[in-house]
Amino acid sequence: MQTKQANTQRILIAGFGGQGILFFGKWIAHAGALLGKQITWLPSYGPEMRGGTANCSVILSDDAIGSPIVHEPDVLIAMNLPSFLAYQPSVCAGGEILYDASLIQDTPAREDVCYRAIAATRIASDAGLDGFANMILLGAFLEDCLPLTQAQRAQVLSQVVPVHKKHLIEANMRALSLGREYAARSESKAEKTRLHPRKAG
């Protein structure tokens, strides 16, 4: 079961509580549903959520999904060093690790996965978007793994942003666009490894 299944995308998002890890996952789940895929979204919960590490398993598939727990992700999104170190070995061969390079200054250890380093926290801060590093990374993820149209992105945002935070939709959109631009631009740079990023099934 180590091998990738063409029609299934297993995603693990991990970081500190408060970085928007679960929201990141929720976003992908709604995007998957919009594309007509079966989805599961499973948060870590309990003491982990209360100030420590947080992680979130998301599966998108064209078929019925068995276990919702992601043990061997096709894509790992790491937003802190402990998560990067903990989950790097579990990513399946040919998968992708997308990480916040402003918080993680570690050398990639795997030869058989694609690394995508985005200095999301710094990019967000420079753009006056403090707190939107998760959306910068999400933009990069969408560019690599889950192509959506502008209208689809807007539709998902309207579904996942709660009513009392509607005023943040515009900032979310800007952060997403920034992330996508950085991902597209780094295509030829050393920030991305020689392997091609995975596209969602």
Binding site: Q38, I39, T40, W41, L42, P43, Y45, I65, P68, I69
Partner: peptide, 10 residues
């Protein structure tokens, strides 16, 4: 159990 309770699906 906690997994089925906490997970989100269609």
């Amino acid at each position: 159990d906690g997994t089925i309770g906490q997970m989100m699906e269609q």
